[in-house]
Write a protein that binds this DNA or RNA. Structure first.
Length: 930
RNA sequence: GCCGGAGUGGCGGAAUGGCAGACGCGGCGGACUCAAAAUCCGUUGCCCGCAAGGGCGUGUGGGUUCAAGUCCCACCUCCGGCACCA
């Protein structure tokens, strides 16, 4: 009884492909190339999730399709294996992370192979491989050896950094320090997000609402020496160069917003001395007219950044951040106590507290005044925590009439509000804060100017007078690149020690030929209670080294998980190269990635970091293109099965869902006890009780996680692949449906029976399969199917491609004679979707394996058109009949045919036709009176 | 609050401004069978009607058009992201 048995044929063909190297990729493309890439997985201990095969199947279909069209396809897979979860697991179980990671990778690899993806497994890599770590460290050294030239807008070797004479005069140490200040990888003593529970510091991006993104643990800010990457210097290019990319507009926008570039001006406000303020101000202004605007503000001015210099005349107070360096100097004796108290309170507040109280502005007056650079008015300086020390200059000019936050503050503390902008063609209502563009009013010489023009004029005039200059800012912060954890890449950096064993502050990169710096064996790799990294407890022979007669201590921080994923797509091209991170010839031939599919959760971090590294490598001549990922597609999330939730009171009775209170208990209601009534679902036995219907994110705690192994066991890999593609559009969020998998399995069964005689004792061709030439009708059927599937794969519209193949099978199933001439091309186009079944059926048809490399069938245009077409006839837009006309019938022929249709004639009788619309091939519409 | 995305049968979904609901699930009916499963065939948006046929129908309300799920305006709901960035 040879039924379709995926458990038999799937391992068979996986072994065949592996033995024959079917999907091995050549070193260089032999023809048109496509680099089809998945976001490689983090091999967690839970194994593959059904979300993984979604994107992986999509890329696999594209890769297989392109290969069959004669394209050279690069389609690799690897593992992002450093990172916190493995380490957390290791700590809990006492297994070294290297062991548990290796085990997890084995599981993932087995599961991926089980699904029949056409990866070139010879290219497999893990970010934890010592040879991979070696080149990750090498790239870090490239970053360390690079400075960003703002004039040329590109990274250049640190040796090319012009040294100002006054630095040169300071000697070798001063020059070294100056260089260190400009490197893309630099050390900083800035306040960091320390997470005691995780025992590490986190990047700003990893802290969400004051708690860690992973685990939701509290985060506090403490100062610590850290490695930073100067991603901010690339902010403009990272934003601008998104332009040419074929990415979803929403992802581009997300990155733009994240980078958050704004332009405006910096301006200096003279700090009013206690005596003779106006003379001092005039002297200062005169001096500035000569000297111009200094690069760094002196202690006599408060420098601010604004995007709206046009509102300068509306400034009624200034605000500095609690951490502002001049705050102490500004504060007058009478205000010292309140300011100190306020500053301490602000320091104790976590970021969470600060954002949670977003609507309630707090702050205190410093006692100081500055002088308005244009009007000469005296303006009070306040301190408030709604101004961030880390953005712009940490101080603002407040324009309460035209800024929502300033307005709230002014209202809270009774400060003046002066309107200086009015909308052009409407009247503002008195309660409105007009923050848009309009026309300047009450603004001295600028009155009447349109906002855009006014901004430019004010900025120019300020610059002319040495009081300001155009400036740009970005929300993006430099990338905090070190972690106080064990399971990451060690930095290839040595810290020089003096005779007493104390660091001298001089840093020395590890020589390239000494890479990789491997992780030492460590009995105890737990993070400590303090930010002192686990590596600081490494054996002395690892920790301390001697070079050129000097003693050094190794850097004991490690790199964050993002490091490895920043460049893996390059290493895939040449994974065993021991001389280069990638051979330049190979890199030029394959890059950029033509299609990159992965989850939207990496929209900002991974994609931004990888683009940044790539641009640095590009600037330094190590790669040939400025952007790594030409086309990006985000697969949607797969939710758990649809659930109905009913609510019960604590006493036991049901409560309708829209009225349930916090004490009522929600419980799953089986689908057969529920029915739809109008807009809502209700209990079948108690229709007044509404139940909620919704699909939830899969999670262990909800118990709705679907295990791919089990689906494969029950229905096979081809069914899982096909189902995930059939569920709906790739980019949509969709709920899982167990019944849906069964449906797709039914389709594969029907494909099987199309070719195989199910009643025979052994696998044998069905007697209906014949060598006779097919009918015209069947030729049309197969060619239309090929055309649709081809077009849909190109558009990544896999669900509709599968629907078309189902239609084809539905046509063929009842046939007593199924011509090989239509079955064979069908098996070929089925192959990218259900490769195992296609190989098996190809073999049953007596063809030489593998169908996976069979040329993609060509569409014969003449079979796409019928001789006649059916065209709807409408009267006043309502469907009233159908006519059959020759395919090429023009508008007048169409109208004539419609008029002769008996039913239409009858309906048109006695009515005046106002107009006739006849669209060839589409419809006829009679517009009648009455 | 701001920025995205989405609302179409019982369910997942399909539809270059031109026949709404392809395809699949589920339901109903039939064939095969002693029976059931499996398989195959038919049918299936809602309402009225014995039927022929008619009416209604793509979140809500307006608009443009011979024609709107699709375009425009306003609103509602859900999902996702951001959140004092001056």
């Amino acid at each position: 009884m040879p039924r379709y048995e995926p458990a038999r044929i799937e391992p068979k063909w996986q072994a065949w492909w592996e033995a024959h190297g079917t999907f091995a990729t050549p070193r260089l493309p032999a023809s048109r190339k496509r680099y089809v890439l998945d976001m490689f997985p983090y091999p967690s201990g839970d194994g593959l999730h059904v979300g993984h095969p979604e994107g992986y199947t999509a890329t696999d279909i594209v890769a297989r399709f392109e290969r069959m069209r004669g394209t050279s396809v690069m389609h690799p897979m690897g593992f992002d294996a450093f990172g916190l979860p493995a380490e957390e697991h290791a700590i809990r179980t006492g297994t070294p992370p290297r062991e548990s990671t290796a085990r997890n990778i084995d599981t993932f690899r087995r599961q991926l192979k089980m699904l029949g993806f056409s990866y070139d497994w010879n290219r497999e890599l893990a970010t934890t491989d010592p040879e991979y770590v070696r080149w990750t460290q090498w790239i870090f050294l490239v970053l360390h050896d690079t400075w960003f030239d703002p004039v040329e807008q590109r990274g250049r070797p640190i040796a090319d950094l012009p040294i100002p004479p006054e630095v040169e005069a300071g000697g070798e140490r001063a020059v070294a320090a100056y260089r260190d200040e400009h490197r893309l990888a630099y050390q900083s003593e800035a306040p960091v997000n320390w997470c005691p529970a995780l025992g590490t510091v986190l990047a700003n991006e990893e802290v969400v609402g004051g708690v860690s993104e992973r685990g939701g643990h509290p985060v506090v800010r403490i100062p610590l020496r850290q490695w930073m990457l100067r991603i901010t210097s690339y902010a403009e290019r990272l934003e601008r160069e998104l332009d040419g990319l074929d990415w979803p507009a929403s992802i581009k926008k997300l990155q733009c917003d994240w980078i958050g570039r704004s332009t405006g001006a910096e301006a200096d406000f003279f700090i009013a001395p206690s005596q003779d303020a106006s003379r001092a101000f005039n002297d200062w202004k005169a001096a500035r007219a000569v000297s111009g605007f200094p690069a760094r503000p002196g202690r006599d001015v408060l420098r601010i950044y604004t995007t709206r210099p046009d509102t300068l005349y509306g400034v009624t107070f200034m605000v500095v951040a609690p951490e502002h360096p001049l705050l102490d100097a500004l504060t007058t004796e009478s205000q010292r106590d309140v300011v100190t108290a306020y500053r301490e309170a602000a320091a104790r507040k976590s970021d969470l507290d600060r954002t949670d109280l977003a609507c309630e502005k707090t702050g205190v007056f410093t006692g100081a005044f500055v002088i308005h650079p244009l009007s000469g008015a005296s303006i009070p300086v306040w301190v408030a925590d709604y101004v961030l020390a880390t953005y712009g200059t940490g101080a603002i000019m407040a324009v309460p009439a035209h800024d929502t936050r300033d307005h709230e503050f002014a209202t809270t503390f009774g400060l003046d509000i002066i309107t200086v902008v009015e909308p052009i063609d409407r009247v503002v209502d008195p309660d409105e804060r007009f923050t848009g563009d309009g026309r300047a009013v009450a603004s001295g010489p600028y009155t009447g100017l349109a906002t855009r023009a006014c901004i430019a004029r004010v900025a120019d005039d300020l610059e002319e007078a040495g009081l300001g200059r155009p400036a740009a800012n970005s929300k993006l912060r430099d990338w905090l690149f070190s972690r106080q954890r064990f399971w990451g890449e060690p930095f290839p950096i040595l810290h020089e020690l003096d005779d007493a064993g104390r660091p001298t502050g001089i840093v020395r990169p590890v020589e390239e030929r000494e890479l990789p710096v491997s992780l030492p064996e460590l009995a105890d790799f737990r993070p400590g209670q303090t930010p002192d990294p686990p590596l600081s407890r490494a054996p002395a022979d690892w920790l301390f080294v001697e070079r050129d007669g000097r003693r050094y201590r190794r850097e004991t921080n490690t790199m964050p998980q993002w490091a490895g994923s920043c460049w893996y797509y390059l290493r895939f091209l040449d994974p065993r190269n021991t001389l280069h991170f990638v051979d330049p010839e190979i890199e030029r031939a394959w890059m950029p990635v033509d299609l990159y599919i992965g989850g939207a959760e990496h929209a900002v971090l991974h994609l931004l970091y990888a683009r940044f590294w790539h641009k640095v490598l590009f600037d330094r001549g190590h790669v040939s293109c400025p952007e790594p990922f030409g086309r990006l597609v985000n697969q949607g999330m797969i939710l758990g099965e649809m659930e109905f939730t009913g609510y019960r009171k604590a006493e036991g009775g049901w409560v309708s869902a829209e009225r349930h209170g916090p004490d009522d208990v929600g419980a799953r209601v089986p689908a057969e006890q529920v029915e739809k009534q109008g807009e809502h679902f209700v209990l079948r036995d108690a229709p007044s009780i509404r139940v909620e219907s919704r699909a939830y994110k899969m999670s262990k705690s909800r118990g709705n996680v679907v295990n791919p192994d089990q689906v494969v066991r029950e229905h096979g890999a081809d069914a899982l692949r096909l189902y995930e593609m059939f569920m709906g559009p790739l980019e949509a969020t969709k709920p899982w449906s167990t019944a849906g998998v069964g449906g797709v399995r039914g389709f594969l069964d029907r494909c099987w029976r199309l070719v195989v005689d199910e009643r025979a004792d052994d696998v044998r061709l069905a007697r209906q399969v014949v060598a006779d030439p097919p009918s015209d009708e069947h030729l049309r059927e197969i060619h239309r199917t090929i055309a649709k599937v081809t077009k849909d794969i190109e558009a990544l519209s896999f669900n509709t491609a599968i629907a078309r193949m189902m239609e084809f099978v539905n046509v063929c199933t009842p046939l007593e004679k199924r011509s090989r001439a239509i079955l064979e091309p069908f098996i070929v186009i089925l192959a990218p979707f259900a490769p195992h079944l296609a190989e098996e059926l190809w073999e049953v048809l007596g063809k030489a394996a593998p169908v996976s490399l069979e040329p993609w069938p060509t569409v014969e245009e003449r079979w796409l058109h019928d001789e006649t077409v059916e065209v709807p006839v409408q009267i006043r837009g309502k469907l009233r009949g159908r006519i059959v006309v020759p395919a090429g019938a023009d508008a007048s022929a169409l109208e004539a045919a419609a008029r002769t249709d008996p039913r239409i004639t009858e309906l048109l009788a006695g009515r005046r036709i106002v107009k006739v619309i006849a669209v060839p091939g589409r419809l006829v519409n009679f517009v009648v009176e009455g």
